[in-house]
Amino acid sequence: MAEVRIDKWMWATRIFKTRTIAAEACKKNRVMIQGVNVKASRMIKVGDVIQVRKPPITYSFKVLEVTERRMGAKMVPQYLENVTTADQYEILELNRISGFVDRAKGMGRPTKKDRRELEQFAGPDAMDDFDFDFDFDTDNE
């Protein structure tokens, strides 16, 4: 098998929980190859680098092998390499702690307005449809 649909591959390698969610991400222009938005039917091959924009950051994955079959989390590193840059992970870390840093001590609980502002900053679906059951090698510098 030399090529496979991008939505099938992203589902099989556990980037998304379901193939439907993977296809929706393509439809919402959140999946790119070389900076160009791709459709769910786009065929990928070994060596392609896929960018998945998941607000607030963009993950990058290099295709090591193609497959259409979903696999266990331990097998995923054989099929993809996480090439996400360190600056993207810094953005993610800043986003995680920002809710705590912005509030001055003694301000009490966040108001509805505060919650809405935080949700708008993080995005409506910040991390809900990724299926990362495995650890990424984060020493890519």
Rank of each mutant, 00 (worst) to 15 (best):
S41T: 09
N29T: 13
F100T: 08
G47A: 14
V31P: 09
A73E: 10
I21H: 06
V31L: 14
C26D: 05
R42S: 03
I21S: 02
I21F: 05
V38F: 04
Y79F: 08
T67G: 04
N29K: 13
V76M: 07
I97W: 02
K45G: 14
K39C: 03
S41Y: 01
M43T: 01
A40F: 01
L94Y: 06
R69A: 13
K39M: 05
S98R: 12
K74H: 09
Y89P: 03
V49S: 02
A23P: 00
K27T: 11
M43Q: 14
I21V: 14
I91L: 15
Y79L: 05
C26V: 07
R42F: 08
I91G: 05
V38L: 04
A86P: 06
K27Q: 11
V63S: 02
V31A: 08
E90H: 05
A22Q: 01
E93N: 08
V66S: 10
T84H: 01
E65N: 14
K27H: 13
R53M: 06
M75R: 13
L64S: 08
I44W: 07
A23F: 00
K27E: 14
I57V: 15
C26Y: 09
L92Y: 08
A22G: 03
M43I: 03
Q88K: 09
F61G: 02
F61Y: 15
I33V: 15
V76E: 07
P77Y: 10
V36M: 11
Y79H: 07
E81A: 07
S41H: 03
A40S: 11
S60A: 15
Q34K: 15
I57Y: 04
K28P: 00
P77M: 09
T67E: 10
L64V: 05
I57E: 06
E65Y: 05
M71F: 06
R42L: 11
A40T: 01
L64C: 09
A23Y: 00
P56S: 11
D87T: 08
V38K: 08
V63T: 05
T58S: 15
V49Q: 04
R53H: 12
D48R: 01
T20S: 11
T85L: 06
I21Q: 08
L64W: 03
L94K: 15
M32Y: 15
A86I: 05
A73Y: 08
P56I: 12
M71L: 15
I21T: 05
Q51I: 01
A86S: 06
